[in-house]
């Protein structure tokens, strides 16, 4: 039997200060997803993440966390139900509009997806280049961000020469360089020790404080800050939600 928990996860502090990004919400309504004809990987998923919120998605391996994120960043379409993103029903979004929407989202995947033949600087600058921005305009921003994530001295390095944690930070820098409205990270602390893990989570928290709606999938629950929202899924279903301490 399916247990449906439909609950709003508000984050009073951040939603209050991010009125300019009022459409950076994510809303799932009775969403189901299946690969091919096998059983549903996700079923009856209901939740709502307001703009500026920070949410951790937790659950055992194979629960469907990555799949859920893929639906959010428009990598796949749900099999049924409705997903609202930036105030729009995703089933109504034409694929021609997807690149523009992707530019409003920062995505950090577990395998980093860095381009090996480009320097750290170029990897981080890639979203800006693709958006047609001039190098002279963004150069200082990129260098500044690299310093901020502790990669200032590695801006010329090629990804294969970076450590796991450095790659992770480069991938995060690339995801946030455009100041996205939504930041999505899949297992961003999977490849680093707990110390680096804590630093990276703090980095996400800082970004979230600036108004970015942040969603992080992880099975490392020890790193989750006390005031974060938690959405736990198991066997493709939402089994619980914990609202951040701002709600009480």
């Amino acid at each position: 039997m399916h247990i449906n928990i439909s609950q709003q996860i508000p984050n009073a502090e951040t939603s209050a200060k991010s009125s300019t990004q009022s459409d950076a919400n994510i809303h799932f309504e009775r969403v189901g997803f299946r690969y091919d004809r096998e059983g549903e990987i996700l079923s009856d998923i209901n939740f709502s993440l307001p703009p500026g919120s920070m949410t951790f998605i937790i659950g055992p391996s194979g629960a469907g966390k990555s799949t859920l994120l893929k639906l959010i960043y428009l990598n796949m379409r749900q099999s049924r139900g409705h997903i609202t993103l930036f105030g729009r029903d995703t089933s109504q979004i034409d694929r021609k509009e997807i690149p523009a929407l992707k530019r409003r989202m920062g995505i950090v995947l577990q395998d980093f997806r860095l381009i090996d033949h480009l320097s750290v600087f170029e990897n981080v600058a890639l979203p800006l280049r693709v958006a047609g921005r001039k190098r002279a305009d963004y150069k200082d921003d990129v260098l500044g961000l690299l310093k901020w994530v502790g990669l200032g001295h590695r801006s010329h390095a090629l990804p294969p020469t970076l450590s796991g944690g450095e790659k992770q930070r480069a991938a995060i820098a690339r995801a946030v360089i455009t100041k996205p409205d939504i930041l999505i990270a899949d297992e961003p602390t999977g490849n680093v020790d707990s110390d680096m893990g804590r630093r990276l989570i703090r980095l996400f928290t800082e970004l979230n404080r600036l108004g970015t709606t942040t969603i992080i999938a992880t099975h490392n629950t020890t790193l989750i800050p006390e005031d974060a929202n938690i959405l736990s899924i198991e066997h493709g279903q939402v089994t619980g939600t914990i609202s951040g301490e701002h709600i009480g």
């Binding site: 480009l118 600087f121 150069k139 260098l143 310093k147 901020w148 001295h153 010329h156 800082e206």
Partner: peptide
Amino acid sequence: MVNTLVDTDIQHTELTAQSHVMKTQAIL
């Protein structure tokens, strides 16, 4: 955005200026 975030505890020991000219690399 960058400036407001300098109070994180990420190590800043390597803040050497990278202001020398870098050539744009071809994406492909």
